[in-house]
Computed example of a mutant assay.
Amino acid sequence: MSLRFEVDAVVLDIEGTTSATGFVVDVLYPYSRSRFAALLAERADDPEVARAVAGVRELLGEPDADAVRVEKALGQWLDEDRKATPLKTLQGIVWSEGFARGELVSHFYDDVVPVLRRWHADGVHLHVYSSGSVAAQRAWFTSSPEGDLLPLVSGLYDTENAGPKQEPESYRRIAAATGGVPERLLFLSDRPGELDAARAAGWHAVRIRRPGEPYYEQDLGGHPEAGTFDEITISARSNP
């Protein structure tokens, strides 16, 4: 059964929605883990790295934590799949470099890219909201198996520039940033708590429910669901 929405913009989660969580956990997490030590040693004076390290120390409550302690904390947060902003920032730096060197290529489910191309061609604005940093999102969409998909995307949002994904205020910030009216925005995610927050902010929300993903068995929370992007039909305001 097709779900139909008349909206101006679609905001996409990545992990578990456009792309397999297993790829992130099994490929990207180990890649970043193996490179954190070198990043902290070689680029400690880089402003973005230094700001993220300060964020790690703040979360630890250890203002004098050295690079070894910071690396240990990052590894522990990876094991916990913690959505800590400084972790995501440092991951984004490492991943961006890996994508740029051709050592990494992102993953998209087969149904996703053709639908995103169609929605974009139909005048629907596409945005991304992920716990991964904006830098990581940009690299992800630039380095897809089907080439550079970044031209399809109008805006990128993460926990730093929008806020935590399970808080309604974050979705209000995104709506304001895009100039969109909440009832003309649609959020797609696999995680019920995120969908709850988007709905509380006045958005439409659809759960993407794919077998094998971590939240597959969770209660729907009253949200409509789709197994693939093909099951969602979008009409923009300018379309008939």
Rank of each mutant, 00 (worst) to 15 (best):
G212T: 13
H120R: 13
W140K: 10
S131N: 12
V128M: 12
L116M: 15
S170E: 04
G147Q: 10
S130L: 09
L156E: 05
G212K: 09
S130T: 12
R199T: 15
S154Q: 14
P151F: 08
E160H: 15
F141P: 00
E225A: 14
G221T: 05
A197M: 11
T159E: 04
R138V: 08
T142A: 14
S131I: 01
A200Y: 01
A121E: 15
R209P: 10
E167V: 12
K165N: 10
A162I: 08
D230P: 08
T178N: 07
D230E: 13
D158E: 03
L149T: 04
Q218V: 04
I174T: 03
D148S: 09
L152P: 01
G147H: 03
S170W: 04
A136R: 02
Y171K: 01
S189T: 09
F187Q: 01
F187I: 01
V153Q: 07
T142H: 10
P168C: 07
Y215Q: 15
D190I: 06
T233I: 13
R138E: 11
G202L: 09
L188C: 00
R207E: 11
L149R: 00
L188M: 04
L150A: 13
V115G: 02
G123M: 08
R118E: 15
D158W: 03
H125S: 13
P182H: 09
T178K: 01
R191N: 12
P192W: 10
R173S: 07
I208M: 13
Y171R: 03
Q218D: 15
P224N: 06
P211S: 07
A162E: 04
V124D: 00
V181N: 10
E217L: 08
A200N: 04
A177Q: 11
D158Y: 02
Y215N: 14
D196A: 12
G202R: 08
E217S: 15
K165M: 05
G163M: 07
I234A: 03
I208Q: 06
L150Q: 12
R207P: 11
R191K: 14
S131M: 04
R117K: 08
P114A: 13
D148Y: 11
P168F: 11
W119Y: 06
W203D: 02
Y215D: 14
F229D: 01
P164Q: 06
I208Y: 06
G163K: 02
